[in-house]
Design a protein around this nucleic acid. Structure first.
Lengths: 329, 329
DNA sequence: CTGAAAGCGCTAACAA
DNA sequence: TTGTTAGCGCTTTCAG
């Protein structure tokens, strides 16, 4: 391992000058700086981030903690985050909390222990504890779901999107829309349910048909099954995310019910496969990449700026993409 | 920030003893150790990984560098890796190289700069340079694709899986199978092509219908289009991964060709949506989770063991899952 | 079994 | 503008 003192010796100068030349370049003789860079190059010098971060008390590493890596929404977000981060000299690593509270808290610990420069997180629940980060004054930006702490966040208008989707179902002529959503602990699950209920209320439909399940395929299947087993089963479904929708589709298929003919179906979040399902699925699309860039921009500001500025909140709109699954025959 | 010296003061002992008590516990008086732990607990002490790693010259962090996070195969691998890593006291973070050589090399640099304990990587190409890691004696395990360096790796039998898939197509009665695969630089792309050709050879089919494209939806669409525009177009497709398959489906749909009726279709890698496509897609399934656990196990051994032991190679078999898309009417 | 002290590689006062 | 040097927080000899 070649270290800074080796470069100093090679360039015939001191470690301080090497450090200065290789970093900000602030007030070091251009010729000397060039010599230093040449020496560093020749020796293949790579700064040791550990030592640097320990000394500086801050690193260049961001942790992006996402609640479920299998959700393509998050992978698009990640791309947005990364593009902005890299442009500002940070590296981003991903942590998959897998909707598991324990894993999530371990990653939060990790961010603190590794002295991350910043954290972007889609919290498992509104109760997710980020005190560990606040205590070490590591800036945090929350995405997708909100949290019981005064931090910056970026979200989509879940309630509005759900309202639009359910309204669409009703306008198509479906009479008894149901809502299959995530666990009560997930704010997006609740907001999407509320949007669904807004639409029912506006249309004067009294019966709420709601199933809360885990945000997974199995949850979708179970939710749809329980709803369909009721006395007056739903004739259409607003589903709160893509994984759930896959489960709902499975259950519909098992019962010989075809979306766009026997039942209506629309879901939140546009998955890459949604246009290829039989029939193609209508969705509420989220601006995932833009959520990532927005969150990253907030984080860059927060790292550079004053810690005690008031939290900033960004809410992005959704787009309704209509395909065949929601058509009323 | 509470540090080790604070704990020492609280416990009425020295930093050395605190360090020992909090780590291996090796030959520390049990009573003293208990006092130390109590003090650490009381003060909310968290070790600073940066300082520890700098001193020890090794960290507990693994980097898992994957070539495309949108491929669900990799997310399952990640889960397998993580389970083993955590069980052995390591933390793992994900890096998405996005099939981009530059990003990949930046992550390799990052692993070196952060003194990662180990790296698991699905390399962008056989030419991926991991010298940076070898130079810092950071153990590496390669997955999914091989690489021009003597390292441990874990792969699936791509060629065998491709052979089985293509044989199945032929046995169904399809006469002119084609192969839509990834770029020549990707070893899996080549191996799957070779397996396809093995099957044609065995069946005495002379005409090779092959399209190499990028491992993405667009590539699949373009590949299928170019094949279908030939003089004697294929009547069936073996597709080298799930993203490509989506593109192929798109092109077939655009031409009014229905899999399992007008054409045969089977693809490598079982995606979560594969059973829900119209018609459900036949696939070659990979033991993704097991690839992750195997790779992680190799890495644990390698970190603990001697660096110069001969590289170990693991090849896992694939499973053919037959659904409707490959049926010959 | 415990403590004192020497660094890990780097940056940032402080001096020159 | 450059160099000397004191740590960042921790682990690990080496003495005791």
């Amino acid at each position: 391992m070649v270290k800074i003192v080796d470069v100093a010796r090679e360039a015939g100068t001191s470690v301080a000058t090497v450090s200065r030349a290789l970093n900000n370049n602030d007030r070091v003789d251009p010729q000397l700086a060039a010599r230093v860079r040449a020496a560093a190059e020749k020796l293949g010098y790579r700064p040791n981030h550990l030592a640097r971060s320990l000394r500086r008390q801050r690193s260049n590493l961001w942790l992006l903690i996402i609640s479920d890596i299998e959700v393509s929404f998050f992978t698009s977000v990640a791309r947005g985050v990364e593009d902005i981060a890299v442009a500002n000299g940070y590296s981003v690593v991903l942590c998959n909390a897998d909707e598991d509270e324990t894993k999530e808290s371990q990653y939060i610990q990790l961010a603190a222990a590794e002295h991350a420069a910043g954290v972007i997180i889609s919290p498992h629940s509104t109760q997710t504890q980020i005190d560990r980060l606040a205590a070490d004054s590591i800036p945090v930006v929350v995405i997708d779901r909100s949290i019981a702490a005064p931090v910056d966040w970026v979200m989509v208008d879940s309630r509005g999107g759900a309202l639009a989707a359910t309204e669409h179902l009703i306008r198509q002529g479906w009479q008894r829309p149901a809502c299959v959503t995530g666990p009560r602990s997930a704010e997006t699950a609740m907001l999407r349910r509320l949007g669904y209920e807004d639409a029912l209320r506006a249309a004067g439909i009294r019966t709420r048909r709601v199933a809360h399940r885990s945000f997974h395929l199995d949850g979708g299947r179970a939710g749809a099954a329980s709803l369909l087993d009721r006395d007056r089963p739903p004739d259409s479904f607003f589903v709160a995310n893509a994984a759930l929708a896959l489960g709902v589709l499975q259950e519909l298929h098992a019962r010989g019910l075809r979306p766009g003919r026997d039942v209506g179906l629309i879901c939140f979040d546009d998955a890459p496969w949604a246009p290829f399902i039989d029939p193609p699925i209508s969705v509420v699309a989220q601006p995932a990449y833009r959520i990532g860039t927005q969150a990253a921009t907030l984080l860059v500001d927060r790292i550079g700026g004053t810690a005690d500025a008031a939290p900033r909140r960004v809410v992005l709109g959704t787009d309704l993409i209509l395909r065949e699954s929601s058509v009323h025959p």
